[in-house]
Design a protein around this nucleic acid. Structure first.
Length: 429
DNA sequence: TGGATTTGACCGCC
DNA sequence: GGCGGTCAAATCCA
């Protein structure tokens, strides 16, 4: 049974932060994704929102089997709807020529426009939750209004650190070429001087056997997706998936040109969230990454609005299209995405998608050949070990490939929860 | 000063 | 024994 997450108890406070553009959104703002209302900024914002919504949907899917608390589920649904609603509003603004979330910074994330009252629900799409047992159903959740501040939209702290505040953040820069080149992104450029392992590990202290270093658990649910590098800015950065991750390791993998980076949920300590992911650049296509998610998030990093959500009318037809056929989905998605033909929404086949993590979508940015990315979502049985997108490609059910959407949701960073519960997280590591 | 990343070492599984 | 995953001290940065 589900235990009410702490964040559900704090909405007023969080909402206030959201409305004021404080906290969470600080980095989001600095990130400049809506700079000058440029289209790129708009789309970044849109993708971020959609990614958030999708992520939440995936989480919900994961929780459904074990949760029967109507109130909780309703709150989750609202959060999802709000995320998509925020995206719709940004697109509406773009379509009408309004400066997207202008100086107001999208109400910090596009959820609450400081200068405008929340528009009425758009009913753009209708959510569709396949029954848990029907995990093979294509999914896409789109809803309406409201603001759930993607927790991540506070974005990585490193955002502010690097020289490229407008870059997509997400995985560490070193993912690109490993060895922590640190030149590709906002990530810190460290160790100019070989601090050397000697300094660190030097006091050849008596090697005390470490306890508790355990390996992956069998039965752990994994999902591997292949995603393109960030469409804008530094393409050597893997796209962000909206979660807040903390890198805890990097490893050169035998047979791979690029190192694999390991991340775990930033909120591991506070929520005991065991979500992890591995990011590895593909040898055959350096501009794509294989991201393997291990374990689901239990942290529910998205918070604020759950208890302050305005009405959510479910949404409409477009969503239905998404769930019916790739073609329809593409069309609908295109419409939803503000008529951007360059935002390719293509059908993707995936392995039996574990009910969880369905919030992951693959995309291709302005790609004339959306499928050449080998996008795919693959479920993997018991290990958090290697997986291949190839497997995903051999499967048989369609899932949307929303342009960029999912993984560029904007950042994993600096986290909302970190701001609020930083002290707790300190138990880290 | 706090929080995140880097990176060599450690450890478990195959 | 090798490889992959994780730990944790050192380091970096805002």
């Amino acid at each position: 049974m589900h235990v009410l997450a702490p964040h559900l108890l704090a909405p007023p406070f969080l909402a206030l932060r959201a409305a004021s553009g404080l906290g969470y959104y600080r980095d989001h703002r600095s990130r400049g994704r809506i700079i000058g209302g440029g289209e790129t900024g708009v789309m970044d914002e849109v993708l971020s929102r959609i990614g958030e919504g999708f992520r939440l949907a995936g989480e919900l899917m994961d929780e459904l089997p074990a949760t029967n608390d109507p109130a909780y589920l309703a709150a989750r649904c609202h959060a999802i709807a709000h995320a998509y609603g925020a995206a719709a509003r940004v697109l509406e603004d773009a379509a009408t020529g309004q400066p997207p979330l202008g100086g107001g910074e999208a109400g910090a994330g596009g959820y609450v426009h400081p200068q405008r009252p929340p528009p009425a629900p758009l009913d753009l799409l209708r959510m569709s939750f396949p029954a848990p047992e029907d995990a093979r159903s294509p999914l896409l959740f789109l809803g309406t209004a409201g603001p759930p501040p993607p927790p991540n939209h506070h974005h990585h702290h490193q955002l502010g650190r690097g020289p490229h505040p407008h870059q997509w953040l997400g995985a560490a820069p070193s993912d690109a070429y490993g060895a922590g080149a640190g030149t590709s992104s906002g990530g810190p450029v460290r160790r100019l001087a070989p601090s050397s392992s000697s300094s660190r590990s030097s006091p050849p202290s008596p090697v005390l056997p470490r306890q508790g270093r355990r390996r992956r658990e069998s039965g752990e649910k994994n999902v591997t997706v292949t995603v393109a590098a960030q469409p804008t800015g530094n393409t050597e950065l893997p796209p962000d998936d909206g979660y807040t991750w903390r890198k805890y390791g990097q490893k050169d993998i035998l047979g791979s040109r690029y190192p694999r980076s390991y991340y775990r949920c930033t909120h591991k300590n506070y929520y005991g969230c065991e979500a992890k992911k591995k990011v590895q650049r593909r040898d055959e296509d350096p501009f794509t990454y294989e991201v393997t998610y291990c374990g689901g998030h239990s942290c529910l990093t998205s918070t604020t609005p759950l208890l302050t959500l305005p009405n959510t009318t479910g949404a409409a037809a477009a969503a239905a299209s998404f769930t019916s056929s790739p073609t329809a989905a593409t069309t609908s998605a295109a419409a939803v995405l503000g008529g951007r033909p360059d935002l390719v929404v293509a059908p993707v086949v995936v392995e039996p998608p574990p009910p969880h993590q369905l919030g992951i979508l693959n995309y291709s940015w302005m790609s004339s050949s959306p499928t050449n990315l080998g996008v795919g979502l693959a479920g993997e049985a018991s290990t958090c070990s290697n997986n291949t997108a190839a497997a995903a490609r051999d499967t048989d059910y369609p899932v949307l490939d929303l342009a960029d959407v999912m993984f560029n949701s904007g950042s994993s960073g600096g986290s909302t929860m970190d701001d609020i519960f930083s002290s707790h997280d300190r138990r880290d590591s």
